[in-house]
Design a protein around this nucleic acid. Structure first.
Length: 794
RNA sequence: GGGCUCGUGGUCUAAUGGCAUGACAAUGCCCUUACAAGGCAUAGAUCGCCGGUUCGAUUCCGGCCGGGCCCACCA
């Protein structure tokens, strides 16, 4: 049947929205099931991973709805962050430093709105059961208010502090970043061996990949057990190109005597170790890099350059002066900023921090109370928490973002925090309502903005209208489910848990499901640089949304899955099969009164299929309750295709064509019953296809406006009958054997068989009539046989 | 380097202490009154490698190899 799947799917998407099928009813008496969905970053298009993860979360949402819950399934956009601003900078070819704050924000907001529209259409296109009226954005007023309120509350609890401290800094984005925003990148670099002279005429050699930090060198470290350097300990070493400074040689157990020369030159700040060493040794800090990434006046001959040029220049100068002994190529890992891939620097600046390292053990203990699906993902969080070294730096030196609700007194410098009633506040535009402690009324607003994770860690609070609607919050918090990817356990899951514990002393949800990634067909990560990105829109265009959803329903939750186009083909074929089988059922049952199955009129094939169906319902329900949706989809698919379509339908065709007698009516009733229940169980996976069939063939059965408002089927134990299934198996086996015979004889399946002899066990006697009908056999005989065998006479 | 995870016909996958599912691809036959976007059939796997427990291991245990993700990294 030629059917335009795209048109069909669009039709139902619009229908659901128009008829409020997925609308959350706050007043409903049903128990609530709420989902804290991941707000995708507005910085590009919907990618395969999105389609994969959101579809998986949608299976759960749709199932819960059918299982009797009032489902709260919102959708949000994360558009307050650096990623969004960088996307706009790139798209428009601009940089924030060339604009005033307000102007820049305006540009970003305009562009974001445009991108959002595209993304929204894409997400709607995969048929999510989202209540779109709940759409939120992390830059909108409610989110701003909640983020700032969170700041106030943390401040009240003494969880915030401001400190001038060495911080990981992105010289390209010109902002501080957090530990979680780091990424590794392996780089080819040059390992420089440099000889220093001691003040008493000796020579000590060091090796470094960062010679440009020479002017910031504050010490030399050697291992205390290293005999080669024992004599240098405590001596003064002359540092070239640093205005004749000398530094001391220290003993330090962190030094690896095997690496390089075994002597390390220590600069402020080359890497994270340097920061620790500075704190231990109480050495001076010499900062030679400015916030915009250029070397300053303390860098002497390197002033005005940026890191890479400075490195080149320093190497040249060291060569000329004879300090450079040799250079060798080296591969090493550098920390880069995940957003722009620029190697980070460590600079001292004034930043706001959330104090949270002290409660690491509590986080681990509380997080263990959550239901983790799959369970093993919890370890990733533990791992992360145990490795935490820094408090959470929440200051970003960016124009675009949620502002800190903070002013500083121009006279005494004291920070003044906004009052609850003033929120949301923009301290640049708005004036504080209070005086400073010192009596001054002159203030300057905080120019920094909050880290985007400071806000996105509050999605449960945003969804539950924290501080906005107290009754609603009480009803909804904590939420039931957080579905998210394993890549952001350390970021999103962790920060959300921390925030909920700080603010509410409660976990933010009951369950957390972790979905895997969509990889390319060879199991590699999809990335632009590898050129292996498959766009979901393309696949939707080529196949259809339900086919894509079918693919997302196959794997086990949490596993990474290679994207295979053939799964799309397979899904589409399945959909076609369902449509065709449904059409058959509709045709043969036309005019038959809908109703219960008459148990007395059942034939062996009916009893077998009903038994299997009811077992399947049980199995599928149990799987869904454990979030094992693939174990709900696969068995239904196999039952539908391999049992129902391949055998049952064929077995009852002749009965069903004759609707007048009891047996024919029973067949029609069973056909309808089995198909309808399969549709219900497939509805979470293939919402469009099942809706189409429900609306065309089962209109009378629909209690509400959509199949998605129907009750999930309940298994009826009365029908589960092992004996009936066994007989059914034997019947099917005999039919399969006859098909094989017909095939090898080159005959069509409907060819009349004059006589058939079946060698099998006694019990098959009750199934002979079914076999006869199905295979068009005139005369049939059962002979005793150990192994099943058939002989046909045409 | 540490943690977690995966490793089953050509490809992807299911289950399981005792005959290893199914899909896709391949091959052959069939226009059969739901379906050629289909049906039927055929062939194809020493279940990554090595060792242990066991009457018996693909399954449990240990080691190794390989893929993936996260974390830490040597200046």
């Amino acid at each position: 049947m030629a059917l335009d799947f795209h048109e069909m799917e669009r039709k139902w998407q619009l229908y659901w929205e128009k008829n409020n099928v997925h609308k959350f009813d706050r007043k409903s008496k049903k128990p609530v099931y709420s989902i804290d969905t991941p707000p995708p970053t507005v910085s590009g298009t919907m990618h395969m991973g999105h389609a994969f993860a959101f579809t998986q979360q949608d299976f759960i949402a749709r199932y819960k709805k059918m299982a009797g819950f009032e489902v709260f399934h919102p959708f949000g956009f994360d558009n307050n962050g650096l990623a969004t601003a960088l996307m706009v900078e790139k798209k428009k070819g601009v940089k924030q430093k060339n604009f005033g704050r307000e102007e820049f924000i305006k540009i970003v907001l305009e562009e974001t709105a445009e991108e959002e529209k595209k993304m929204l259409a894409a997400f709607k296109g995969i048929g999510l059961s989202v209540d779109w009226s709940l759409l939120y954005r992390t830059i909108d007023k409610p989110a701003r208010k909640i983020a700032q309120y969170s700041f106030l509350d943390l401040h009240k609890q003494g969880r915030l502090y401001q400190r001038e401290a060495p911080t990981m800094w992105c010289p390209s984005c010109a902002t501080a970043i957090a530990q979680a925003e780091l990424q590794d990148r392996e780089e080819e670099s040059s390992f420089c061996y440099i000889d220093f002279e001691t003040t008493d005429g000796g020579k000590i050699g060091i090796a470094t990949t960062r010679p440009e930090l020479m002017p910031a060198c504050v010490a030399i470290h050697v291992h205390p057990d290293d005999k080669r350097y024992k004599k240098f300990v405590g001596k003064e070493v002359k540092i070239p190109f640093s205005g004749g400074r000398t530094v001391k040689v220290f003993e330090n157990r962190d030094v690896d005597p095997e690496f390089g020369t075994g002597a390390v030159y220590h600069c402020t700040f080359g890497d994270l170790d340097d920061v620790e060493w500075i704190l231990e040794t109480n050495l001076p800090v010499i900062e030679i890099i400015d916030k915009d990434g250029t070397f300053n006046e303390k860098a002497g001959i390197l002033q005005g350059l940026r890191t890479l040029d400075a490195r080149k220049k320093m190497i040249e100068e060291l060569k000329k002066s004879g300090h450079l002994v040799k250079q060798e190529p080296i591969k090493h890992v550098v920390n880069v900023h995940e957003r722009c891939k620029t190697p980070i620097e460590i600079l001292t600046s004034k930043q706001w921090f959330v104090k949270y390292l002290d409660l690491r053990e509590e986080y681990i203990a509380r997080a263990a109370e959550l239901e983790w699906v799959p369970e093993y993902m919890k370890k990733r969080l533990d791992n992360w928490i145990n490795g935490l070294k820094w408090d959470w730096n929440i200051s970003r030196q960016r124009h675009y973002g949620i502002p800190f609700p903070v002013w500083y007194c121009k006279k005494c410098g004291e920070a003044l925090i906004a009052g609850e009633k003033e929120l949301p506040v923009d301290p640049i535009k708005d004036k504080p309502k209070k005086k400073c402690k010192c009596g001054s009324t002159e203030f300057e607003g905080e120019k920094d903005t909050l880290d985007t994770w400071f806000t996105s860690s509050l999605t449960p609070q945003i969804n539950c209208k924290w501080q906005e609607d107290k009754a609603f919050f009480k009803k909804m918090f904590p939420m039931d489910l957080r579905p998210q990817g394993h890549d952001i356990i350390a970021l999103w899951a962790f920060n959300t848990i921390v925030k909920a514990l700080f603010h509410e002393r409660k976990l933010p949800w009951k369950t957390i499901t972790i979905n895997g990634w969509a990889l390319d067909q060879h199991g590699k990560k999809m990335s632009k640089s590898l050129g292996n990105v498959v766009r979901p829109e393309e696949m939707l265009q080529k196949y259809c949304a339900d086919a894509l959803r079918y693919w997302a329903g196959l794997p086990v939750l949490g596993e990474d899955v290679p994207f295979m186009e053939k799964e799309m083909v397979s899904g589409k074929k399945f959909i076609t099969k369902i449509m065709n089988a449904s059409r058959f059922v509709e045709i043969v049952t036309k005019g038959v009164k809908e109703g219960g199955v008459d148990k007395k009129a059942l034939e062996p094939e009916d009893r077998a299929v009903l038994s299997k169906l009811n077992r399947l319902v049980k199995e599928s329900t149990e799987a869904f309750d454990k979030y094992e949706f693939s174990k709900a989809l696969n068995p239904v698919r196999n039952f539908f295709w391999l049992e129902f379509a391949d055998f049952y339908i064929e077995e009852v065709k002749t009965r069903a064509y004759n609707k007048k007698d009891k047996s024919g009516k029973a067949a029609a009733a069973v056909l309808q019953h089995v198909l309808w229940n399969c549709l219900l169980m497939l509805a979470p996976f293939l919402p469009h296809t099942t809706e189409e069939i429900a609306q065309t063939s089962f209109k009378k059965r629909l209690k509400g406006k959509s199949i998605h408002l129907e009750q999930w089927p309940k298994a009826d134990e009365k029908f589960i009958d092992e004996k009936a299934e066994k007989l059914g198996e034997s019947i099917n086996a005999a039919i399969a054997a006859m098909r094989k015979e017909k095939t090898s004889a080159g005959k069509p399946m409907n060819t009349e068989v004059k006589k058939a002899v079946v060698f099998s066990g006694e019990e098959l006697k009750q199934g002979l009539a079914t076999i006869q009908r199905t295979m068009n056999v005139k005369e049939i005989e059962l002979k005793k046989g150990e192994e099943l065998k058939v002989e046909l006479e045409f």
